[in-house]
Structures are given as structure tokens and as C-alpha cells.
Write a protein that binds this DNA or RNA. Structure first.
Length: 554
RNA sequence: GGCCCCGUAGCUCAGCUGGAUAGAGCACUCGCCUCCUAAGCGAGGGGCCACAGGUUCGAAUCCUGUCGGGGCCGCCA
């Protein structure tokens, strides 16, 4: 609708130039926005003000000329006004808006989707927690965010892959192996000093017990390094399986799991390093190999190979991202915890160094989650193993509330997650508020069926019977859903969908309280059923993207 | 010391590529179920958009500086 208006304006402008009523010949990009104040119409453009300088005329005068060129009101726009310093406000004909309801009905599950990103391959890498312990609440936010970003991109036509990067090569796996081995010995009566740098959580003891039951004490015989390796591999596998299960329970399934270790096994790390050297991007100093990231905006050069010959995590990451690029993704999105933000410049430097635009890499930084219970902070410390796992939270508050809460804030602002609030079934809880809108429409539909009233199919209801302001306003809001999705996708901001949903639910609840849908007049009932079912469809479609269910009753 | 993020109502936060009178939820006060689900709705108070400059026809939004809060700065991952 916006596009159609834009074209009309552009055509009118061209007409003005051709006719000589405007003469700068400079056509600015026509910006159209939805005014905050409904009295200012449905759409508004500031072209006249933008052109004032080039035309050397007053904005209002330019607006005047432009309006004349636009011609008489028609079945598309109903009214054009010049307002304020030179805004041109358009009010569209109600029928335009009601057409949206038919579109929602006929497109149904695909309403809101678009082809904007068609032909673009995007990868979203998220969670990627070390396989050394269960997912905790912070990972949950990253998971919800990454999945929603991926979903929103898919909905706008991008080809998306969800990937999990498994850090199974660094010395944290070694630490895991050591931790398990020590607990294993302990279970067999040995007194061991359990070091502080080992993983403290109870899950380590549980895993060790599992090994004891399955393998007996045969691992005691094994030479220490071999045993540590064995336990590291075993533990990593088991924990990763658990992580996958936790993600599944959270409604997330990865398309691809990528092992860091595989980059070593197939020589990708070595080859990557060789390529960097060849391109003159790395150099030797103090016995170590460095990436010249300072040449690309980083404030310090970074070590790739330590003087003891071991590669750094950074080296793996360079190789990993080279590998991603070779898979043909045009955009690579990494979802990281905000504590890694210092890592962004060096990773972007890698892209620049390799001849790619740094924009190819998009990093979404997810801020910490502050876990509360009834306003009281819940203590957490990974060190001591006292953390709240994602699984525990999902079990306690449910998947819907959990995912919704994680997405309620933009990812770069800290999030307070109150367990009590998330569980509450009250007006305070925004999850239920939105879901309730859906359930209410379903309830209306059930009543209609009971009364022998058939639900209108697409195009069947006489929508001109929707004569109330609230009805028009609802239709307009529904019409904005596709562009809301597009905005959320373009900016990687799924929270926009949440805010949209809350607004839509609010308008629906208000309407519901004011007007009855099923009334005496059958034609009006039909029209209203079409309207509220369009609301239902959009609520359901949007919730689906966010991984939240749309219950039919509550 | 360097760099990054943030500062909007009592609290938690939106504010789209700069636009017209800055919004929502919670909390607080008052009102609404003989009527499709009250997990709902309506009404009300509440603001120097941290501060000071600058750019612009126009700034919460962009730039600079100051103050305040948080974070990062390893040949760890």
C-alpha cells in the first residue's frame, strides 16, 4: 500500500517536472511514514520539505503544486492535506484497508511473509555453548533470540541455516575430562583434591557415576592422559546430547552442528593460517604468529599461534568463519553474549582482511539475564556450579512464557526475568495477554458454530458493514504486520514483533469489550467475524515465528 | 589508561531510515461481569527524553564534550 502511494507521488513529481511547474529536476527519495497521530491521516510524506532547498520555494508551495498534479481523490486515496511545515497527509479509502482482511483470510498462514530476501543465503549461528555443562538461563536468551531472528528472516524470504558451533577442541574439554576422571576416582573411594579450575557442578558427579555403572573400574587402569581424553570425549558427547534435548524442549532445532575439532582434523586451521600468511595478513613476533587486525580497525594485533606452538581460539574462529564464507552465505550472523563484544572488531577485521565487507558479519550481542524471583535476585555463579539451567526455568514457567520474556527487550539491553511474574496468570503477564486475544477469537468462533452461524470464507463477508472507527483502526494495524516483520528481519530485532503483538492484542481486547461480534444483524456478524479472525490469524502467525503457542482456549 | 553499550514517567522498557501534542506495561486512584472467556475493558494523575553545545526547516533520535551506570581490554575459551 505504501509502495503504491510512493509510485503515485513519484509519478506526480515527474509530471510537475515535465510540465515545468517544478524545475530543479532533482527527485528526492520519497519517504512515506505512518503518522503517530491518526488525525494526520494514514500516510504522510515530507518530500515537499526535502525539496525546499533545491526548488528554492516554500515547502507548502511545493506541496500545493504536487497535490494539484496528483489529481482528484479516487478509490485509492480519499483525502490529501497539507499540514504543519509542509507535510502532505494522505487518507486512504476505507475499502483499501478492508481489502487487507480478505488478503489475511486467503493467504492465511503465509500472511505477513514476503520475498524480500529471496536468493539470499544467511547463516545464524547461536547458542554455541561449550559442551562442558548444561545450558543456563543466559544461553536461553541467546537461543530464543537466534531462533527468532532466523524465523523472521525465513519469513521474509531469506534462506536461513541455524548452526551450533561446538567448541570441542580447546582445553576446556581437557578440563572436563579431568573433572570427570577425578569424580570417577572419588566415587571409588579415592580421596582427591578437587581443583578450583575444574567444573564444580553436580552434573559432573552424575556423569562420573554413569561411567562407573557402565564401565566399572576399568578406566582406573588407563594411563592418565588417555583417561582424561576418554572422559573428555565421553563427557562432551553426553553433555551435547543433553543440550540438544534442552533446545528441543525449548522448541529449537539446529540445522547444522559444526565441530571445532573437525577444523583441525581436516587441516582447515592449518590451511587458513597459510592463507593469511600468503596474503601478508599475519606476521611472526616473540615466537608467536599474529594477525594484523590493527590494519582493519582493531586496536591491537591478535595472536593466532602461541609461542608454544598451540593455536588460539581466535585461529579456530578465523578458520571457522572462512569455512562459513566458503559455504556461500551472503550474511553471517553470530549471536554472542555481550561479554564478548570486545571480540567484534577483530572478527570484522578478519572479514576485511579477507576482502569481504565487514558488514558481511553481523554480530548480535545478547545482554545478561537478571534472574529474579518475586523481585529478589536469584544468586548464580558458574564457578561453583550454582546456576539455574534453562531446563529448570522452562519446566517451571513453561516454554511460552520463557520464550516470550526473552524476546521482550531488545537484545542489547539487560533483561530482568522474574520467575514469579512469568508464571502469573494475570494482567501483569504479557504472554497471556497476547495468547488470550487468540483464545477469545476461538471462543467466539465456537459460539458462532453453536448458533449455526457459519464463518465467512475469504471475500464472503460484506466488509462495508464494518463502519466503526475501531474496526477501521484494527484493519490498519493488521495491514502493518508485513512491514513490521520486514523491519524486524532487516534490523535483526525480533522484539519488534512482540511489541506489535501487544499493540494488536490491546486493540482487539478493547474492541471486544465494546462491541459484540455475534449480533442480530447477520451481515454485521459476518463482517465482524472476518475482522476478528484476521486478528486471530495474525496473532497466530506472529506467535509461531517466536516459538510461542497460540492456544484455542485458556 | 584505551575502547564499547547505556542514561526516556515512581519501576521495567518502546520510540521504525531525524518529523507534527514523546508512548506502553506495571504500580497508584476510581469505575465496568442479567451481555461472545474479567488471564479483559474504561477513566485519571505522573516527563527539562542525564547535562551543555553543534548540524538541520525540524533532534529523544545525528555529531562533540561533561557527568553518571554497566561492560571489555590473556600467547584463556
Amino acid at each position: 500500500m505504501k509502495e503504491r502511494l510512493r509510485q503515485a507521488i513519484q509519478a506526480a513529481l515527474q509530471g510537475c517536472f515535465d510540465a515545468g511547474s517544478l524545475n530543479s529536476g532533482i527527485v528526492p527519495e520519497v519517504q512515506i511514514e505512518v503518522p503517530g497521530n491518526p488525525q494526520h491521516g494514514d500516510f504522510s510524506t515530507n518530500v515537499a520539505m526535502m525539496m525546499a532547498r533545491a526548488e528554492k520555494k516554500a515547502p507548502r508551495q511545493i506541496a500545493e503544486t504536487l497535490i494539484t498534479a496528483l489529481g482528484e481523490p479516487n478509490d485509492f486515496w480519499q483525502k490529501v492535506e497539507i499540514a504543519g511545515p509542509g507535510f502532505i497527509n494522505f487518507t486512504l479509502a476505507p475499502t483499501c484497508w478492508y481489502q487487507v482482511l480478505d488478503r489475511v483470510a486467503s493467504e492465511n498462514v503465509t500472511f505477513g511473509r514476503s520475498e524480500a530476501g529471496r536468493g539470499h543465503k544467511v547463516q545464524v549461528e547461536f547458542v554455541s555453548a561449550n559442551p562442558t555443562g548444561p545450558l543456563h538461563i543466559g544461553h536461553g536468551r541467546g537461543a530464543a533470540t537466534g531462533d527468532a531472528v532466523a524465523a523472521v528472516l525465513e519469513a521474509t524470504g531469506y534462506e536461513v541455516q541455524r548452526e551450533y558451533y561446538i567448541n570441542d577442541a580447546g582445553n576446556q574439554i581437557n578440563t572436563l575430562g579431568r573433572s570427570l576422571l577425578l569424580r570417577y576416582r572419588e566415587l571409588q573411594g579415592e580421596t582427591v583434591a578437587f581443583p578450583e579450575d575444574c567444573y564444580q557442578g553436580d552434573y559432573i558427579v552424575d556423569l562420573a557415576r554413569e561411567v562407573l555403572e557402565a564401565e566399572g573400574n576399568r578406566l582406573l587402569e588407563m594411563p592418565e592422559t588417555e583417561a582424561v581424553n576418554w572422559f573428555g570425549t565421553f563427557g562432551g558427547d553426553r553433555i551435547l546430547t543433553g543440550i540438544d534435548a534442552d533446545l528441543q524442549a525449548f522448541g529449537i532445532s539446529m540445522d547444522h552442528w559444526f565441530s571445532e575439532k573437525s577444523l583441525f582434523d581436516n587441516g582447515a586451521v592449518k590451511e587458513g593460517l597459510a592463507q593469511l600468511a600468503e596474503r601478508g595478513l599475519s606476521f611472526e613476533q616473540d615466537g608467536a604468529t599474529w594477525f594484523r587486525t590493527t590494519e582493519f580497525g582493531d586496536d591491537k594485533d591478535r595472536v593466532l599461534v602461541r609461542s608454544n606452538g598451540e593455536t588460539t581460539y581466535f585461529a579456530s574462529d578465523v578458520a571457522y568463519h572462512m569455512e562459513k564464507l566458503s559455504r556461500g552465505f551472503e550474511t553471517i550472523i553470530d549471536v554472542w553474549g555481550a561479554d564478548h563484544h570486545g571480540y567484534v572488531p577483530r572478527m570484522k577485521a578478519v572479514f576485511s582482511g579477507l576482502g569481504y565487507s565487514p558488514e558481511t558479519l553481523q554480530v548480535i550481542l545478547v545482554q545478561l539475564v537478571n534472574l529474579l524471583r518475586g523481585g529478589e535476585q536469584v544468586a548464580m555463579s558458574t564457578r561453583s556450579g550454582e546456576f539455574v539451567t534453562l531446563r529448570e526455568v522452562v519446566d517451571e514457567v513453561g516454554r511460552d512464557a520463557c520464550r516470550f520474556f526473552f524476546l521482550m527487550r531488545r537484545s542489547d539491553s539487560q533483561l530482568d526475568f522474574d520467575l514469579e511474574l512469568a508464571k502469573q496468570q494475570s494482567t501483569e503477564n504479557p504472554v497471556y495477554y497476547v495468547q488470550y486475544a487468540h483464545a477469545r477469537v476461538c471462543s467466539i468462533n465456537r459460539n458462532a458454530t453453536e448458533q449455526g452461524v457459519a464463518l465467512p470464507g475469504p471475500g464472503e463477508a460484506d466488509l462495508t458493514r464494518l463502519s466503526l472507527d475501531e474496526e477501521l483502526a484494527l484493519a490498519k494495524l493488521l495491514a502493518r504486520y508485513p512491514e513490521t516483520l520486514l523491519g524486524a528481519a532487516r534490523h535483526y530485532e525480533p522484539h519488534r514483533v512482540i511489541f506489535y503483538l501487544q499493540e494488536l492484542a490491546a486493540q482487539f481486547h478493547s474492541y471486544y469489550n465494546r462491541e459484540k461480534v455475534l449480533v442480530e444483524d447477520a451481515a454485521i456478524s459476518q463482517a465482524r467475524l472476518a475482522l476478528v479472525n484476521a486478528v486471530r490469524t495474525v496473532v497466530r502467525n506472529a506467535l509461531e515465528l517466536l516459538g510461542v503457542s497460540a492456544p484455542e482456549r485458556m
